Amino acid sequence: MRYRHWGIASLLLLVAFGAVADPPPNRQTELETLLYQDCGSCHGMTLGGGLGPSLLPERMARYDVTAITAIILHGIPGTAMPPWSELLTRQDAAWLAKQLKKNSPTP
């Protein structure tokens, strides 16, 4: 467990700080589909948890957008959370992170 925290901290260092513009509306629609279908396959179709933990806003409140973005892009070593950096841009991942922080992400 101790090493997992270091892994997450290391991932945070890989992501540059600063604002990232939202992707265009058509890409946002694609990302919403990815969130509920691809992410939902492990985190539950309503994101309430499954093989992976819940991604609901009350759980995501403990992380900032930068941390969630890093986890999306680089995964979590030693867990089933894969890196998505080959399929998603930083802009995509940051937008998804913001959606997970909302009170009610749109399915």
Rank of each mutant, 00 (worst) to 15 (best):
G52Q: 00
M81S: 10
I76D: 15
R2I: 15
G75K: 01
A9F: 15
R90N: 06
E86L: 00
S10A: 10
Q28N: 03
T69C: 03
Q37E: 12
Q99H: 11
R62W: 12
P53T: 01
E30T: 15
T106C: 09
H5S: 13
I68N: 01
S54P: 15
T46Q: 06
Q91S: 13
R90S: 07
L51Y: 02
V65S: 07
R90D: 02
R90V: 12
A19D: 14
G50Q: 06
T69E: 02
D38L: 03
H43R: 11
S85N: 14
P23S: 09
D38N: 05
A70N: 06
I71D: 01
L55C: 08
A97Y: 03
L11V: 12
P53A: 04
P107F: 04
M81P: 09
R59W: 11
A61T: 14
W6P: 10
D92M: 02
I71S: 04
S54C: 14
T69H: 00
R27T: 08
D38K: 01
A16Q: 12
L56P: 04
L34R: 05
P83L: 01
W84F: 11
L100A: 11
A19V: 09
G50L: 05
I71M: 12
H5P: 07
T69W: 00
A80V: 14
L88I: 05
A93D: 03
D92L: 04
W95E: 02
L11R: 08
D22M: 05
E86S: 06
A19E: 13
R4N: 10
L34S: 09
G52R: 00
L88R: 05
M81E: 05
P77Q: 08
S85W: 05
L73V: 03
W84Y: 12
W84T: 13
P82W: 01
R90M: 09
R59Q: 14
S85P: 10
T106F: 08
M81Y: 02
G44M: 05
P53M: 09
D64C: 11
M81W: 00
V15I: 09
L14C: 09
P77S: 07
D64F: 10
R90I: 09
T29W: 02
V65Y: 01
I8C: 04
R4F: 03
T89V: 10
P82A: 09
G44A: 08
C42K: 04
G75E: 06
T66L: 00
K98T: 11
M45I: 12
A67K: 07
P57R: 07
R27C: 07
C39Q: 07
N26I: 07
R62S: 14
K101R: 14
L100F: 09
P107N: 10
R62A: 15
V15N: 01
G48L: 06
L100G: 12
